[in-house]
């Protein structure tokens, strides 16, 4: 049943309980996104990063999506504040 109260183990933020070397730069973001519970710190960071990535995606799309986004972005001067959210 989906409405059942979550198990206690579900209420732990994986970003805050995982020690050792099972996490790395390649899998960290995916792990955190699929984690059922995120603490305030990780949720805030994740949300800010997702908004920023969305802007980058749009920017890359506008600049023609045929090549790697960062190359296009690096060649295009970004006005200061463009990537800032709610400033």
């Amino acid at each position: 049943t989906t409405s059942a109260s979550p198990k206690k183990s579900d209420l732990r933020c994986m970003g805050c309980v995982t020690v050792g070397l099972s996490l790395n730069s390649k899998n960290f973001s995916k792990m955190l996104q699929t984690c059922l519970y995120q603490c305030d710190r990780h949720r805030v960071i994740l949300e800010a990063e997702e908004r920023y990535k969305e802007k980058l995606r749009k920017l890359a799309f506008c600049n023609n999506s045929s090549s790697a986004p960062y190359q296009k972005i690096v060649l295009t001067p970004i006005r200061k504040g463009n990537l800032n959210t709610e400033s």
Binding site: V19, F28, N84, S87
Partner: peptide
């Protein structure tokens, strides 16, 4: 905890 050391993009840090 590795998870406590995320370095977000510079433009997001103040927020």
């Amino acid at each position: 905890l590795l998870g406590h050391f995320i370095l977000p993009p510079a433009c997001l840090q103040e927020e």
